[in-house]
């Protein structure tokens, strides 16, 4: 080990300049995002249908996709869901109350359409279901109401 390899052990003026420069880097994303507003892409989502706890259908929600329909036959009664670029919804249900159909389209991760008579749950999930990642941004843990 040679003498000129010794580090300075005191905080100097050049350190201060470096730190200020580094701190400025943090502002860049805001500047860039500000210019690219609209082109911003949120995390990808999928629609998942479970009936009586079993997953029966899964469909990625993509911009500009064609509608995808899925029909389930539940003891002779028909339950139809549709996924398209705006989200997913229950299109038709032979259940008595039709609450599921009235719920309409869901599009955000965590939202659900529930059909109690058929034990069916249509939900939106993040495509990469990593909670540590979805914590950042507008991810929510539960919905009241």
């Amino acid at each position: 080990m040679t003498e000129n390899d010794r580090p300075g052990l005191r905080f100097g003026f050049r350190d201060l300049v470096l730190i200020i420069a580094l701190a400025m880097i943090g502002v860049i994303p805001f500047a860039v995002m500000h210019n690219m507003r609209g082109a911003e892409k949120s995390a990808r989502t999928v629609a998942v249908l479970t009936i009586a706890g079993d997953e029966v259908w899964r469909c990625a929600i993509d911009d500009g996709m064609d509608p995808v329909e899925y029909s389930a036959d539940i003891d002779g009664e028909i339950f139809t869901v549709i996924a398209d670029s705006t989200g997913a919804r229950v299109n038709h249900s032979d259940c008595p109350d039709k609450i599921c159909v009235e719920t309409g389209t869901i599009s955000k991760a965590g939202q659900t359409v529930v059909c109690v008579p058929f034990r069916a749950v249509l939900r939106i999930e993040y495509a990469d279901d990593d909670p540590e990642l979805t914590d950042v941004g507008d991810a929510i843990d539960a919905i009241s109401g």
Binding site: G104, D135, D138, G145
Partner: peptide
């Protein structure tokens, strides 16, 4: 949450159930 954050509970917007009143 494990990272010490509060849990986030959204309240459904009754006018548009796709949206939230707030969190």
């Amino acid at each position: 949450k494990p990272n010490g954050d509060l849990l986030r509970v959204a309240i459904t917007d009754p006018e548009n159930r796709q949206q939230y009143l707030g969190v």
